[in-house]
């Protein structure tokens, strides 16, 4: 054998592509604004928290070992957040509980690509996570309006009793387009969103 196959660790994919893939596991919970908001916040906390903790790892711990350590850290942070939510925010846990573990894959994809100084890693993770958060929220708004004809439904379960008045019904729920609420609707909505962004970019270029 002359050419040893190169083992490529983590190809440097463009960040928006990674962020796009990182979105997928969480997409299902973007069916209402409160759900999308809570999932996005949880993801932000995990991304920033695990990157910060990973920053204290010694620099020589990189490559496969570094990834293993990072995976351990991310899963630990996610489990911790899941326990804390279960104990102190039971309403949020009711709607998000089973989806919280999915954040692991989500965040690993975001954090993995950054092998820089701790501060740079932190800013990169934070901006990517913020991008994912923004996309989740946009999808949440779109899907809740299309699927249920409402805005901020059930927000008191998420944010406490003061939020009960935030719920606005725009049109009768029966008129809602079911696809908006069902999981496949999330992917269709995401596709539409990206088509829209691309269209905006093209217009700008002209």
């Amino acid at each position: 054998m002359q050419n040893e196959p190169q083992i490529s660790t983590a190809p440097e994919a463009p960040r928006d592509v990674l962020a796009l893939i990182a979105l997928c596991p969480l997409l299902a919970v973007s069916d209402t604004i409160p759900n999308a908001f809570a999932a996005g916040i949880a993801m932000l906390v995990v991304a920033i928290g695990s990157t910060a903790i990973a920053g204290i790892l010694p620099r020589w711990l990189d490559g496969e070992l570094g990834f293993a350590a990072l995976a351990l850290i991310v899963t630990t942070v996610v489990t911790a957040i899941s326990l804390a939510t279960h104990a102190w925010l039971p309403g949020t846990y009711d709607s998000l509980g089973i989806f919280l573990p999915l954040i692991v894959t989500n965040v690993l994809l975001i954090v993995q690509a950054t092998r820089a100084t701790p501060t740079r890693a932190l800013t990169t993770a934070a901006t990517t996570a913020a991008f994912v958060f923004g996309t989740m929220l946009t999808l949440g708004i779109g899907r809740e309006i299309v699927g249920r004809g409402s805005v901020l439904r059930d927000s008191q379960r998420m944010f406490g009793d003061w939020a009960a008045g935030l719920h606005q019904q725009l049109f009768r729920e029966d008129m809602g387009f079911l696809l908006g609420v069902l999981p496949p609707g999330a992917f269709i909505a995401l596709g539409l969103l990206f088509a829209f962004v691309k269209w905006l970019r093209r217009i700008k270029q002209r």
Binding site: L57, P58, L61, L65, A68, A69, L72, I73, T75, T76, T79, A80, L83, A84, H86, A87, W88
Partner: peptide, 24 residues
């Protein structure tokens, strides 16, 4: 180093588990 990270994670999580169990 990995083993150390794992041990630290296990300790942190079992402490949090104990702290939240009654409340949950």
């Amino acid at each position: 180093a990995i083993v150390l990270v794992a041990i630290a994670a296990a300790i942190a999580l079992s402490m949090l588990d104990r702290a939240t169990q009654a409340r949950i």
